[in-house]
């Protein structure tokens, strides 16, 4: 039951992009085509779950026993950067097909603040390890959902006549605002 609540709340109620404002750069950057959104989501989900589990272990088995909690930011970002590289190398060897699909998005993920954000939020919320895994996976799904919704709408916008100044990024933000309003309706869910 606990897990279902974490799952639903991370996807809908506290959607990482639309309610928590994390991962906005890729949200706006790669959302002009549906296909790229799906690829990005896959890559983010992959890295986010692994990174959350690894940073969780580091926090509770290294930083805490040594009481060097102030090193959290620097350790976490290094771990994420290293992980992204590692995932890239392993994927290239093990599954060239998957690498073909996700490869170009992987380097972008280091500076996706959603990944670091989720790692820190997991610690702040005091989750245990299985909860952390569920939370990070659900967050990635929520990220993907927002990305896919936005990109499918932006694709149809190509055919619409929009005022010149609003074209491109501003109109994407307006849509994001409306989406975010719609997601607020989920608030009573949990």
């Amino acid at each position: 039951m606990e897990y279902i609540i974490i799952f639903i709340s991370a996807i809908f109620v506290n959607n990482i992009v639309l309610a928590k404002f994390l991962g906005i750069c890729p949200f706006i950057g790669v959302s002009s085509r549906l296909e790229t959104s799906v690829g990005m989501t896959g890559a983010v989900a992959f890295v986010m779950v692994i990174a959350t589990i690894v940073t969780y272990l580091i926090q509770y088995y290294i930083l805490k026993p040594l009481s060097i909690g102030f090193m959290q930011t620097i350790t976490f970002i290094l771990v994420i950067a290293a992980l992204v590289q590692l995932v890239e190398i392993i994927l290239k060897k093990v599954s060239p097909a998957l690498y073909q699909a996700l490869g170009i998005y992987l380097p972008l993920i280091t500076t996706n603040c959603a990944v670091l954000g989720v790692a820190i939020l997991t610690i702040q919320n005091g989750y245990n390890l299985p909860e952390a895994a569920v939370f990070s996976f659900a967050t990635a799904i929520g990220f993907g959902l927002a990305l896919v919704l936005l990109s499918s709408m932006r694709e149809s916008l190509d055919l619409v006549d929009i005022p010149k100044g609003m074209k491109g990024i501003p109109v994407a933000f307006i849509i994001a605002g409306i989406l975010s309003m719609a997601f607020m309706g989920f608030a009573g869910l949990v």
Partner: peptide
């Protein structure tokens, strides 16, 4: 709230 952030920023960038 969250939606207002997106909408306000959209107009600021447009301006």
């Amino acid at each position: 709230l969250a939606p207002g952030a997106f909408i306000a920023l959209a107009y600021l960038i447009a301006i």
